[in-house]
């Protein structure tokens, strides 16, 4: 899989996980504010746990700050960065 395919694949998985956790009544867009959709710290941790399982990564303390999980786009970027390090 090339880099571009990887990014797309990561994004699809992140989108799926976020939608499953937040359970909004509509599809969540890439730059929709998850906080405005009611994302709280417990849901955020659920997302993080699922991401760690899905991508076999460990999200370190610096990346455990809720503000880093504002959009699907920002989460995908974070995961991409962590996956690239493996």
């Amino acid at each position: 899989m090339n880099v571009q395919d990887n990014i797309i694949s990561i994004n699809h998985s992140v989108t799926r996980i976020v939608n499953a956790v937040i359970q909004s009544n509509r599809e969540i867009g890439q730059i929709d504010s998850l906080f405005e959709l009611g994302l709280d710290s417990i849901q955020c941790m659920r997302i993080i746990i699922e991401l760690e399982k899905e991508f076999n990564i460990e999200i370190e303390d610096d990346d455990l700050l809720i503000k880093k999980y504002e959009t699907i786009s920002s989460i995908s970027e974070l995961v991409n960065k962590l996956v690239s390090k493996i």
Binding site: S41, I49, D61, L64, I66
Partner: peptide
Amino acid sequence: SFESLRNNALKFEL
């Protein structure tokens, strides 16, 4: 730092 610790504590609970 405490926000990280709190989130780690949530992770422990889950």
